[in-house]
């Protein structure tokens, strides 16, 4: 027995409210981040990730208040991402109570940000989020498939960067990322499961932990992310938000597949 694989619910937050409704029993306010965080904590979530999708920058300080309120009541690790552009943004989130800060688009525009933030606060609190899309997709037409490749996208999957996702993950590790949050933009929202080949390619290429994300539709998908994708942690939003499954059910299924989890 040793280190457990982690299950991480992700909450999308805009203007201080959780966007997707959550069906926790007895929840008074389905959009209140603190109540939702507490609900996931009770279910046995190993960490929580807050993604700030607030469009306008003048409303972005609201996430700081949320992090403060959650950190005062929920004693598990909190990761916060979305709109992190400067070392100062990292500092403010950590001071508010975040344990880790996730950097996405800004890492592509300014890789030195990852090095600077990691050098100042330590690799353990710097997560680099990578949104990847398959290119030159292997097909099932019978033609010999090319080795699959994935390209890094920014701006929520809208802008291609020309960067190879596996090489980019390695580079981010070298610059000081302590963890990689890897999202398949092909699978995100499809409920068809993680892109396991992508997950495995990145997980085997780096020495830091990899969180698989994008596409979870059922609990078997979570187990596959660990067993086939070789991820260290799995992240999901909608299957937990809409009350289809609890975090505890997810962990029980994973345990039944031989995965070590915290129950």
């Amino acid at each position: 027995m040793g280190l457990a694989k982690r299950v991480i619910p992700c909450l999308d937050v805009t203007r201080g409210r959780v966007v997707k409704g959550v069906n926790f029993v007895g929840l008074r306010d389905a959009g209140d981040p603190v109540e939702i965080a507490r609900g996931y904590d009770d279910q046995g979530a190993d960490e929580l990730t807050f993604l700030d999708i607030t469009a306008s920058s003048d409303e972005r300080d609201l996430i700081l208040h949320i992090v403060e309120a959650v950190a005062a009541q929920v004693f598990i690790p909190l990761t916060v991402g979305g709109g992190v552009r400067k070392v100062e943004d990292v500092r403010r989130l950590l001071n508010a109570g975040a344990d880790k800060v996730s950097i996405n688009t800004a890492a592509v525009h300014n890789p030195q940000l990852v090095a600077d933030a990691s050098g100042r606060y330590g690799a353990q609190c710097i997560v680099v989020a990578i949104d990847a899309k398959r290119v030159g997709a292997a097909t099932d037409t019978g033609a010999a498939p090319a080795e699959p490749r994935w390209e890094v996208y920014t701006h929520g999957g809208r802008k291609p960067t020309g960067l190879d996702a596996v090489a980019w993950a390695r580079r981010m590790q070298t610059l000081g990322a302590g963890e990689i949050l890897l999202t398949s933009m092909d699978r995100d929202g499809t409920k068809s499961g993680f892109d396991l080949a992508l997950t495995r390619a990145v997980a085997e290429a780096v020495d830091v932990p990899v969180i698989a994300s994008g596409g979870v539709g059922n609990l078997e998908h979570l187990a596959a992310g660990i067993l086939e994708g070789r991820a260290d942690a799995v992240l999901a939003a909608s299957i937990f938000h809409y009350g289809e499954y609890s975090v505890r059910q997810a962990k029980e299924l994973m345990a039944s597949r031989g995965i070590e989890v915290r129950l």
Partner: peptide
Amino acid sequence: PQAMKDAQGGKLKVPHMGWNE
């Protein structure tokens, strides 16, 4: 780095991050 293998020979990541006994 050279020692970071689990009982099945799989790669163990560093940082050691998460819940352990």
